[in-house]
């Protein structure tokens, strides 16, 4: 990490770390729900979607930050949308070139990255005000946090719904998969349960601290 100019806050690893857990886009900020629910029916789809979103997030954050002095605030949102839509189109073609099968599995949801509130949100709230390196780190952190959350969902749904993880069967032949988990309703249930788990942790933490005086959180 190199030192920053005086007026600008220094780059810190926190820009990267906060997206992973404390401000996790899915579990804490509850942003970008549509792709999270729609393509998390298997771990590999979830991973691909997460990486595609991260790619767009990092590049759009970087470009928005680069252009932040040249864009008047009246047309700010319009340029953000232009930039994001271009990167999404690029990702769409790249995925098609790499694997047609993956592109079919993700379908229109690749294009729908463009309306993921997470990306516009980061561009507006962070990248349009911060230095390029900080915005890059922020995008990377948020993107990874998003990918991680998608993987959490995708893994649970694939293990229970198909008895496999990344296509590798985990259970002996007698296992009856819970088909409902890979159906749409399974997506709602799994995400609901994950949020419940995080809520539980949050509700419980202060209670523990009160019970053990002087205990570290």
């Amino acid at each position: 990490m190199k030192g920053a100019e005086k007026a600008v806050p220094a780059i810190s690893t926190d820009d990267f770390i906060k997206g992973l857990w404390r401000e996790n886009p899915v579990f804490v900020q509850v942003l970008g729900m549509c792709p999270v629910l729609a393509v998390s029916n298997s771990a590999i789809n979830a991973l691909a979607m997460g990486l595609a979103t991260s790619f767009v997030l990092v590049l759009s954050n970087t470009l928005v930050s680069l252009l932040r002095h040249g864009v008047p605030r009246q047309v700010r949102i319009a340029t953000f949308i232009l930039i994001i839509a271009s990167f999404v189109t690029v990702v769409d073609y790249l995925i098609q070139a790499v694997s047609l099968e993956l592109h079919r599995a993700l379908g229109a949801f690749i294009s729908l990255i463009v309306v993921n509130c997470l990306i516009l949100g980061r561009a507006e709230a962070f990248a349009s005000k911060q230095s390029v390196s900080r915005s890059f780190l922020d995008g990377l952190g948020m993107g990874l946090g998003f990918t991680l959350a998608l993987l959490c969902l995708g893994a649970v749904r694939e293990i229970l719904g198909s008895g496999a993880l990344f296509g590798v069967a985990l259970f002996p032949a007698g296992f009856q998969p819970w088909t409902v988990m890979i159906l749409p309703s399974g997506g709602f249930f799994t995400l609901g349960l994950w949020l419940l788990f995080f809520n539980y942790l949050r509700v419980r933490k202060p209670a523990v601290r009160e019970a053990v005086p002087g205990g570290t959180p």
Partner: peptide, 14 residues
């Protein structure tokens, strides 16, 4: 408490 909010809404949606 833990179930309130989005978690509950998602369960109903399911």
């Amino acid at each position: 408490d833990a179930v309130q909010g989005t978690a509950l809404t998602l369960m109903i949606a399911g």
